[in-house]
Write a protein that binds this DNA or RNA. Structure first.
Length: 727
DNA sequence: CGAAAGGCTCTTTTT
DNA sequence: GAGCCTTTCG
C-alpha cells in the first residue's frame, strides 16, 4: 500500500523528503498534520525506520492521540513505541529517566500555574517583599521569560536592566531554591532542565541523539527558544528535523514563542528543504478570501497565496446585537435554526471568543434554550479545589517534600491546624534548614537524642501527629495498593467525602471527585508506584482541548487560542469589538496588535462553510457596562464579502434584516409570543405595567415587567403569569 | 481556630 | 462579578 497515495504533489514532496532538514510552511487547512502523519508512516513502512527511533512533537495531547490513530489507520497495525507528545510531556519523561545526571530526583512533582503562584508568593515574602506590591503573576512572567532563554537566576541577575528585573531576579533565585526543596519542577523547568541536562551531560545527549533518527515538530511557529534549542540538540549532526508551521497562525508570543525560530531554522540549516502548502481543503472560497483580507493588513509578514478548489460558498455574516446576552441569544437561536433546517448538526457549530470570561453569557443562553453544548475548560476540571485537594494528597504520598501540596492539605479536612501554627511551622523548619515534612517528623516522632526544642502546644502536636501518621500509612500502603485502591483509601481515611458533603455545592463537588476517580481507574492496572506517578503526570500535563469529545453531538465553546488546529462547518466569533478582539492590552504595541489579528485569522480559517462575526453594542466588563466600537478587523473585510450589516433585535420583527432575509424569524424551542420590551401589559393581581424584557427560559419565557401600581419590577414566567396585552 | 461577612482588586490568551 | 484577603465574632 502506498502511504502517500492520498497526498497532493506538494504534500507528497514534504512527506518523502527524507534525510536532512525540512521546513514546511503550511496555510490553514492545507493538511499539515496530515503530512506529518503520512511522513511518519512513510518513514516506518518505506524507509524501514523503527518507530522507536522517531520523535513527533505536537502542540496538545489530543493532537498526539489523533496522530497516533491516524498512523494506526495508515499503517494498519500497531505503531510501536513511537515517541509522540507535547514538548512538556516528552521532557518530563526524559527527566524522570535521566534527570539524575543534573541532580533531579525522579520522583519530582510538576507544579502547575496555581502551585507556581503560591510558591512565588512565598518566595516574594521570604526575600522581604510585599506580594501586593510585586504581583506574583508579573514575576512569574519574568521568570518564564528567563527560562525560555535558559537563563538561570544567576544569569538573569547579571542581565537586569530595571529595578523590577532586579526584584524579579532575587525572587527567581529564592523560587528555584523552594522548588528544589520541594523536589518540584514547574512547566518551564521541564523544558529548560532538559536543555541543561543535554548541555551538562554529553553522554545523556548522545544517548538520545543516537536513538532519534528523525524528529518532527508540529505548530513550529509557536515554539520558543528553549524548544528550538532542544530540537537542535536532539537533531545533532544528523539534522533530520522536519518542522511544520504557519507564521500567520502564531498566537503564543506572550508565552515567549518566537517567530524568529523559523528564520533561525533557515539560517542554522541552510541546506533545509522548503515546502509550501498553499492549497486549502477546508474552507469555501469566500471564507478564504475573507480571511486573507484580515491577515493581509499585517505589516510584519510575508504574503502568501492560498487557494482552494472548494465551492464559492456563502458571504460572511456580520451581526450587531445590543448586549452580550443578546449576542448569546442570537448565537443559540441561530444554531437551533441551522439544526432545524437541517443545515448543520449541533456538533458542526462552534462559538469562539477571546477571553474565557465571555463564555459565561453564552453558557447561560445555551442552558436557557436547553441546547446541548460542550465548553472546553469551564472552571477547568483539574483546577477545581476538591480535585486539587485529592491530587495534593497523592502528590505528598509520592513526594513528601512537595511543600505546596503539603500546606494545601495539612488542614483539609479541618484538623485544627490554623494559619498561625503553619507560619510558625514554616519559620521553625526554615530556621533548622529542613523541609516542612522533615520538621513535622521531628515534632511528631522525635528520635532518641534528637528531641528539639519547639514552640508548639501539646494540642497542636497531637493534631500534627495524627496527620503525619495518616500520611505515613498512605505512603506505606502505596507500595502495595493499586492506584484506585489508594485513591479510595485516601478518601476514606481522610473523611473527605463527609467533608465535601457538609459544605456548599456538595453534590457537584462530590461528582467531581467521582470523575477524578474514573480517571484514576485507568491507571489501576499499573504496578503500585508507577500507577501513582503516571497518574500525577497525566493530570498535570493535560491541556483543555484534550477533553474535547468529537463523538458528542453538541455545540462547541472555545477560546480562539484553543481553536487552533480545530475545524467546524459553522463558526461564530463573538465579541468582535475594540477592546475585546483586539484586546485592549494589545493596543500599545504594534506587534501585539498583529497577534490579535492573527488570532482573528485563526478563528475565521477554522470554518468550513459559514462564518458569523458578532459584536455587541455594549457589554459588561469587570462589573460595569461599556460601549465598544466594532472591531477594526471588521473594517478589513470588504463590503462585497459581507452578507449585509445587520442589527439583530430579539423578535422585534418577523423578518430579520441581513441573514434572515431568506428565512423566517428564529424559531427557538419555546413558544413564540408577541410580547417585547416596551409593550404595555395588565396582570390580574399586579395591575398595569411595562415589559422591560422578554427572554426565553427553559420551555417558557421569562418576562420582566415594571408595574406602575407600586409592586415594582417583577420577573414572571409567561405561561403562569397570564399577562394581557393592552394597547 | 474557623466560619462568615465585607472589602479589595483585577482580569488575555495556556503547556 | 469573582476570587482573594482581612476583619470580626463565636
Amino acid at each position: 500500500m502506498d502511504v502517500l497515495a492520498e497526498l497532493n504533489p506538494a504534500q507528497r514532496e514534504a512527506a518523502e523528503a527524507i534525510g536532512g532538514p525540512v521546513l514546511i510552511l503550511a496555510g490553514p487547512g492545507s493538511g499539515k498534520t496530515r503530512v506529518i502523519a503520512h511522513r511518519v508512516a512513510y518513514l516506518i513502512t518505506v524507509c524501514r525506520i523503527s518507530p522507536h527511533r522517531i520523535m513527533a512533537v505536537t502542540f496538545t495531547n489530543k493532537a498526539a492521540r489523533e496522530m497516533e490513530e491516524r498512523l494506526h489507520r495508515l499503517i494498519g497495525g500497531v505503531v510501536g513505541d513511537l515517541t509522540i507528545g507535547t514538548f512538556h510531556a516528552i521532557c518530563a519523561r526524559i527527566l524522570r529517566r535521566d534527570g539524575k545526571a543534573i541532580g533531579i530526583d525522579p520522583r519530582f512533582v510538576i507544579y502547575d500555574e496555581e502551585d507556581q503562584l503560591s510558591l512565588l508568593k512565598r518566595g516574594i515574602q521570604e526575600v522581604g517583599l510585599d506580594p501586593k506590591q510585586y504581583v506574583p503573576r508579573a514575576i512569574a512572567s519574568a521568570i518564564t521569560a528567563a527560562k525560555s532563554r535558559t537563563l538561570t537566576p544567576q544569569d538573569y541577575i547579571q542581565h537586569t536592566r530595571s529595578y523590577f528585573e532586579e526584584v524579579a531576579g532575587r525572587v527567581y533565585e529564592r523560587y528555584q531554591q523552594l522548588l528544589a526543596e520541594s523536589n518540584a519542577l514547574d512547566f518551564d523547568d521541564l523544558l529548560m532542565k532538559t536543555v541543561q541536562l543535554f548541555r551538562n551531560s554529553p553522554e545523556t545527549l548522545s544517548k538520545y541523539q543516537s536513538r532519534y533518527l528523525h524528529i518532527l515538530v508540529d505548530e513550529f511557529q509557536d515554539t520558543n527558544l528553549v524548544q528550538y534549542e532542544l530540537i537542535k540538540q536532539l537533531g545533532g549532526e544528523r539534522h533530520n528535523i522536519c518542522v511544520v508551521g504557519d507564521p500567520d497562525q502564531s498566537i503564543y508570543s506572550w508565552r515567549f514563542a518566537d517567530l524568529r525560530n523559523i528564520l533561525s531554522f533557515e539560517k542554522d540549516y541552510p541546506e533545509a528543504k522548503l515546502v509550501l502548502l498553499e492549497q486549502n481543503y477546508r474552507s469555501t472560497k469566500l471564507i478564504l478570501e475573507t480571511a486573507s483580507h484580515v491577515i493581509s493588513a499585517n505589516q510584519l509578514r510575508k504574503p502568501k497565496e492560498l487557494w482552494t478548489n472548494n465551492e464559492q460558498g456563502e458571504l460572511t455574516n456580520v451581526v450587531e446585537t445590543y448586549t452580550e446576552q443578546e449576542e448569546a441569544q442570537f448565537v443559540v437561536s441561530e444554531v437551533e435554526r441551522l439544526v432545524e433546517q437541517g443545515k448543520a448538526r449541533l456538533g458542526d457549530c462552534a462559538v469562539m471568543y477571546r477571553t474565557n470570561a465571555q463564555s459565561r453569557a453564552l453558557e447561560e443562553a445555551f442552558i436557557r434554550y436547553g441546547t446541548p453544548y460542550k465548553l472546553v475548560a469551564g472552571t477547568r476540571f483539574y483546577e477545581r479545589r476538591e480535585v486539587k485537594d485529592i491530587i495534593a494528597y497523592l502528590r505528598v504520598i509520592q513526594n513528601p517534600h512537595d511543600s505546596v501540596s503539603l500546606l494545601r492539605i495539612i488542614n483539609v479536612p479541618g484538623r485544627g491546624i490554623g494559619q498561625r501554627s503553619l507560619s510558625e511551622l514554616s519559620g521553625w523548619a526554615k530556621s533548622l534548614g529542613i523541609s516542612q515534612y522533615e520538621a513535622l517528623q521531628l515534632i511528631t516522632e522525635p528520635k532518641e537524642g534528637e528531641e528539639r526544642q519547639h514552640p508548639f502546644t501539646p494540642r497542636l502536636v497531637k493534631a500534627l501527629t495524627s496527620f503525619v501518621s495518616l500520611m505515613e500509612e498512605f505512603t506505606t500502603r502505596s507500595q502495595e495498593l493499586n492506584l484506585l485502591d489508594l485513591f479510595d483509601l485516601v478518601i476514606k481515611r481522610t473523611g473527605y467525602k463527609e467533608y465535601i458533603l457538609s459544605g456548599k455545592d456538595d453534590e457537584e463537588r462530590w461528582d467531581n471527585i467521582l470523575e477524578l476517580r474514573t480517571v484514576a481507574r485507568e491507571y489501576r492496572d499499573l504496578k503500585p508506584p508507577e500507577g501513582l506517578a503516571a497518574f500525577l503526570e497525566g493530570v498535570t500535563l493535560v491541556s483543555d482541548v484534550d477533553g474535547l469529545d468529537e463523538t458528542v453531538d453538541a455545540a462547541t465553546l472555545v477560546t480562539l487560542h484553543q481553536a487552533k488546529g480545530l475545524e467546524f462547518p459553522m463558526v461564530f466569533i463573538v465579541g468582535m469589538e475594540e477592546g475585546i478582539l483586539p484586546h485592549f492590552k494589545s493596543f500599545a504595541e504594534p506587534e501585539q496588535m498583529e497577534e490579535e489579528r492573527r488570532l482573528c485569522y485563526v478563528g475565521i480559517t477554522r470554518a468550513k462553510q459559514r462564518v458569523y462575526l458578532i459584536h455587541a453594542f455594549r457589554r459588561s466588563l469587570m462589573g460595569s457596562s461599556t460601549a465598544n466600537r466594532p472591531s477594526r478587523f471588521l473594517e478589513d473585510i470588504p463590503q462585497h464579502l459581507i452578507a449585509s450589516g445587520g442589527l439583530w433585535q430579539w423578535e422585534d420583527s418577523q423578518v430579520m434584516p441581513s441573514i434572515y432575509s431568506r428565512d423566517k424569524a428564529p424559531a427557538p424551542r419555546v413558544a413564540s409570543s408577541e410580547l417585547k420590551a416596551g409593550d404595555h401589559v395588565r396582570h390580574a393581581q399586579f395591575g398595569d405595567g411595562v415589559v422591560v424584557s422578554c427572554q426565553p427560559a427553559k420551555d417558557d419565557k421569562e418576562v420582566v415587567v415594571a408595574f406602575t401600581s407600586g409592586v415594582g419590577v417583577k420577573k414572571l414566567l409567561l405561561s403562569f403569569a397570564k399577562l394581557e396585552k393592552v394597547e
